[in-house]
Amino acid sequence: MADLALCTIAAQLGVTEADPFTVPETAQFLVSGDHGQAPNTVAEIAGGYACWLTPNRILAVTATEPAGFVSDVSHGRAMFVITLHADDLLAMGCSLPRGALAEGLCAQTLFAGLKALLYRRAGTLHIHVERQLTPHLRDWLRQAATAL
């Protein structure tokens, strides 16, 4: 087997993602309450955007801490942004139907065997996973990249 560590996902997939356990650059908040957002959508909010999680919960990706019952999970969720081969990776990593990830929509599903939040933004694919699982996802992406 080719040495996975030698595969650079940054170059092959255009992945930007901080090292697993450093201080994150993007603030993320779990917000509970009546949000009024349509299911599986991404909405623009003050200072960023919000992904629908459940009928009464959103994930706010924003520099401004929202009001209400809010938990700061910036350190708990890693965000991968993928600029290349996004469609191939989706086909390899999950069984989402086409159209479930149109711009403005988000989906929670198993990606690469991990619970993940997926959406497209400005032509890039965003993948949020639990930060503790980042090493696994990086290994998976490295392996996937060598197959492309």
Binding site: M1, L4, P20, F21, M92, A112, G113, L114, E130, R131, Q132, L133, T134, P135, H136, D139, W140, Q143, A144
Partner: peptide
């Protein structure tokens, strides 16, 4: 892909 090191996702501690 789920074999070898990718067989089961393992969580790592922040101070891994």
């Amino acid at each position: 892909q789920r074999h070898g090191s990718l067989y089961a996702p393992l969580r790592q501690l922040p101070a891994h």
